[in-house]
Design a binder for these strands. Sequence first.
DNA 1: CTGGATAACTCGTCCTTACCAGTTATCTGT
DNA 2: ACAGATAACTGGTAAGGACGAGTTATCCAG
Lengths: 253, 253
Amino acid sequence: MINRYSGVPAYRQVADDIRARINSGEYGPGDKLPSEREMVDAYGVSRPTVRDAIGLLRSQGIVTAEHGKGVFVRRLPPVTRLSTERLSRASREANQAAFLGDAATGGFKATSATRVYFEPAVARIADVLGVEPGTEVCVRDRVMNRNDMPVQLAVSRLPRSLTTGTAIEQENPGPGGVYARLEEAGHRFAHFTETVSARMPTPDETSALRLATGTPVITVTRVAYTTTGAAVEVNDMVMVADRFELVYEIPAD
Amino acid sequence: MINRYSGVPAYRQVADDIRARINSGEYGPGDKLPSEREMVDAYGVSRPTVRDAIGLLRSQGIVTAEHGKGVFVRRLPPVTRLSTERLSRASREANQAAFLGDAATGGFKATSATRVYFEPAVARIADVLGVEPGTEVCVRDRVMNRNDMPVQLAVSRLPRSLTTGTAIEQENPGPGGVYARLEEAGHRFAHFTETVSARMPTPDETSALRLATGTPVITVTRVAYTTTGAAVEVNDMVMVADRFELVYEIPAD
DNA sequence: CTGGATAACTCGTCCTTACCAGTTATCTGT
DNA sequence: ACAGATAACTGGTAAGGACGAGTTATCCAG
């Protein structure tokens, strides 16, 4: 099964063979692969070599290993499509919060845990919000769950001058969420910008989102602007990449 | 240096220590880490353990290894910000193509290689374009380079009924690119949708984009709609995640 | 001074061996 | 019949050895 003189490393040949079997459907999503020891016999290589092959497939996000159980072909998790409509006034009036409404439409149980605290603005935040560095900001730090699995982190920062005395400084900001409270206070939103990128998670994110190796995260930084041109919120979001799709609509002119 | 009884695996402790030294600035971007053998002595562990630690940092995208040279702290590559303005008519009239214009503004040498061919539309493409499955489509398959390094793949598909006899079927579609040729032919764009996600690259993408392990890719599927409501193009893009930022502007209503 | 061989480094691959740590099915005593 | 110990699986961690292959500095011959 393994060609020793092809120039292709043995562990790669094993990984390629397993990947081909997965792509051919021989092993379907959720199926258990043969155990490492069985592969040792099947391919005629040592266990570290088999483990190197499996490690490669894990880093490619193709399989996941479960200690004591086995190695499994990764299931495609249900994907949440986040469209820009979630930021419209209409949906704000209908739902408790953007995230909860989004998830509910997908038929999932959505929950979230929120911590609220205050801190001086670092340079980047101060710059975007147009305040002096060190100005106190209200921080809303949230973990969003879908069916009790964490899928998204969101850290939202607003100048405290806008939040004192409002429900925004409560863990539950009430129906329509933070944006609804801001509009009630007379701040009318003009537009939002979202800056999207992706990277591998930090160790903190790996544990907070319970990520398997080989799962990247999507980072979205949203800035909310009011009709006066002021930026009133910076929201840094981190989402498990294989659980989200972001849909943006762009007018031609 | 390594605590054998902490319950934390040795390779993890080594990785954590190296990561901490990088974060503290002891090793800066581009710096060479101590060699594996030096780490074996420094931490008092075996070479496989050191390699496991380095493998972890590689899968996290923190370091890259170069055969014969050493292991280096990854440099943050220059990031290209892609704003939605790239799709405006104005920029189309100014530039040869969206990508080339974007990169040029960043001060990079941008080049691209294009292959054009024809194929029957698969179900997904036919569905989006609103044609019968199997209808022939024009495929523009491009590799975009920045300073001679590939950074993006793009596969664009259009119904051949719109492209026959136009420069769109040429490798170089002329000034303003494909979109300019479509507008000349009387197709006026109304809006675009972009669906953004991220994942680990396939082996093909890893070699085409010369990716180091631990680098995810951003996938963007763009669909172009004309004022008649018809979808005229589906563009599947794959970008090296650490080289791009996508900026979207969202009106509040 | 120059050019090329070489030695000494680097990481990459692969093996054998051993034990630890979760999971699960089976077996056994009540 | 049930509960709990246990045996037999699973992957996870770690050691040590050997050799291959790419890179670079050095040194010597011309």
